[in-house]
Amino acid sequence: MIIINCPFCGPRDHSEFGYGGDASIDYPALDAPMDEWHDAIFLRENICGMQAETWHHVNGCRMWLIVERDTMTHEIKSVRPAHGGNAAVLENVAEGGES
């Protein structure tokens, strides 16, 4: 089991989450040419080692997260919300500010 420390829910088994994919993929604009889309959709760095990837807390808060995880050892380095706004809110809460 991999345990993912969801920033909203706390540490949870990975079976609560859905695996997304490589978080480094920059999806092109909707009007981008086919080749750009091709590369984004079909090609993968496929890193063996630490990679940023998306996970969805599908049986939890339903937040998409960006997890830095080693694909060989499964060690997790960091977890943060994929949505920048959510991340900012969390930081604000952590600092004792108004959310």
Binding site: T54, H56, W64, A82, H83, G85
Partner: peptide, 13 residues
């Protein structure tokens, strides 16, 4: 549902 959440939380923030 998952797809819409993904789009909103990752691509189209």
């Amino acid at each position: 549902m998952v797809w819409l959440e993904e789009l909103l939380q990752t691509r189209w923030q």
